[in-house]
Each structure stands twice: as C-alpha cells, then as structure tokens.
C-alpha cells in the first residue's frame, strides 16, 4: 500500500542534471525527488521538465519510489509540469505551497483529467503535500484529508520559517511547532510525516542528531540533498535493540491474542492498544530495512 512504504530518506535530484537523473536510484534512498521547483532556475524550467519527463520514460529506477516535485499550479510553470509529467505516472508528485484543501483538490482534479487522457488509471499518482506557510500549517488536517491521493505531509523549512518571521537556527527549535502540526495531522489522516532537509552536508553528527530527534518525535523520514547523507539518516532511522525487542514481543502478544480470538491484547500485565501494535509494526519494518533482522537480508 503506497502510503505505508518506507520513506526514511527522500533524495533531491536537480532536474537540470542529466548525470544525476540517470544515477538517482544508485544511492539507496527510499524515495527520490526529481526536482522541477526550487532546484531549477527559471530560465531552465522548460529544459528540466523535458529532461525529467524523458528520464521517467527511459531510466530504469529500481527499488526506489520515484516522485517529482512539480511547480505549484499558482506559478507559470505548474500546469505544463503536470501535463508533461502525470502521463508518465510517477509514484507521486510533491506539491509545494499547499495552503489549503483547495490547492490539493485543484491538483487532484487536473491529475485525474490528465491520467484519463493518457490511459492511466485515475488516482494512480499520489501527492506528497508540502506546506510552506503559516496558513498552510494551520490547514494541515484538511490538506491531508483533501484527497485519497495524499500519502504524506512534508514542510519546507526555509519558506515556512520566513513566513512566520522566525530565524533559522542550527538547533531548529523554531521548527518545533510545524513539526508537531505535521505529525498530528499526518497521524489523523493515516499518512506519513516527512521532515525537511538538513542543509549542512559536511556536518554528519548534526544530521544524525536531528534525524534521530525527528524519528523519536514520530516522523517517518527526512529529505536529504546529498547522497552521503543517506546512510547517516538510515542509521538514525534504525531502531535500537531494545525497541526491536519490545516490538517483537508486542507483535507476539498481538498474534497470540488474535489466534485466541481475544479482543484484548496483554503484555507484561498491561493492555496494548492498536496504535502500539501499529508502531511495533513500523519499528520492525524499519529494522528489516536496516538489515537488523537476521535472515531478512
């Protein structure tokens, strides 16, 4: 199920760089973002659009989820992006500047129209909604619920902090609020919460610390801008032995209760609710991806 697939890392690939477009899936990122938006200067928007379209058509991206960050429909470039890209049916588009449910619905309708005209089953292409403003931050729940295409919520740290008048710091406390909002809205809608980029590609310790912190907050993954950030984020998204051990016991209790037809799951004398089971499943999925579960490689 699309919403549930692992997205520990999402690697940005500038749509203007043919070499990187060809090699995007080599670096082990769970999801790749072929970027037509902020990574592409205005005079090259047309060129990037065609490069990405052709790459979607011809490059065998194996293993990774393929997403395209299109330009927002409010820009002169958005509509052309949709027209060229949607027929190639990437796994999802990343939709910037989502301020309200209307933004999502507008994209949804256009995507349906193009899918049907191209012989693609309607609803095939997902949406990862990116919020970049105070207003968008407040409307996250409706954005998440606006369309079944929405599979994850993401936010743009730079634009968001600029919009709320905060200053970007290394520690990132100014992002506490939007992070919390994204996680809550994502959970309510049953979609993933994805954190933003860590800009300093030379600071691996700082990256690890931030990635671990956001995992513990409840994020499902983080965007990265350089391949060397991928193993670091994956390490942060690798559960500890204790977490894995506990998760295994939860799942065992769950299976045991199910096989008995029991309505209540108990572990160590305490009741375990559905969210605990869901989280245990997620932990085991992360562990498996990291190769921690023996025999799973």
């Amino acid at each position: 199920m699309k919403a549930k697939r692992l997205r520990r890392t999402s690697l940005y690939i500038p749509g203007t760089n043919p070499g990187m477009l060809a090699n995007a899936s080599v670096y082990g990122a769970d999801s790749i973002i072929l970027d037509l938006e902020d990574g592409v200067p205005v005079p090259e928007k047309d060129a990037a659009r065609i490069l990405v379209r052709n790459a979607l058509k011809s490059v065998p991206y194996r293993g990774a989820e393929v997403t395209v960050r299109v330009n927002a429909l409010s820009t002169p470039f958005g509509r052309d992006d949709f027209r060229e890209i949607i027929p190639l049916a990437p796994d999802a588009i990343r939709l910037p500047k989502c301020e309200s449910a209307d933004d999502v619905r507008e994209a949804d309708a256009l995507m349906t129209e193009i899918e049907l005209n191209s012989g693609v089953e309607a609803g095939t292409v997902g949406i990862i909604a990116i919020t970049e403003s105070a207003r968008g931050g407040r409307n996250l729940s409706e954005i998440a619920a606006a369309s079944p295409r929405v599979i994850a919520l993401n936010y743009g740290a730079e634009d968001y902090t600029a919009d709320i008048g905060a200053v970007r710091t290394k520690e990132g406390r100014e992002l506490d609020d939007i992070r919390a909002k994204v996680i809550v809205a994502a959970r309510i809608a049953g979609v993933q919460a994805l954190d933003s980029v860590f800009g300093d590609v030379n600071d691996m310790e700082g990256l690890y610390a931030e990635a671990l912190r956001v995992r513990l907050l409840g994020f499902d993954g983080k965007s990265v801008i350089h391949p060397r950030q991928i193993p670091v984020v994956h390490r942060a998204f690798t559960p500890s032995e204790q977490e894995i051990g506990f998760a295994r016991r939860v799942m065992a209790a769950f299976r045991e209760a199910s096989s008995r037809g029991a309505g209540v799951i108990a572990l160590d004398g305490r009741m375990i609710d559905a969210p605990v089971v869901a989280r245990a499943e997620k932990i085991l999925a992360l562990a498996e991806a990291a190769g921690c579960l023996p025999g799973e490689r």
């Binding site: 060809a22 490069l51 490059v59």
Partner: peptide, 8 residues
C-alpha cells in the same frame, strides 16, 4: 544518454 539527447 539517448533520453538526454532527445530532451536537449
């Protein structure tokens, strides 16, 4: 690659 040449 071919897809790049066609795109350009």
């Amino acid at each position: 690659l071919d897809c790049t040449l066609r795109a350009r």
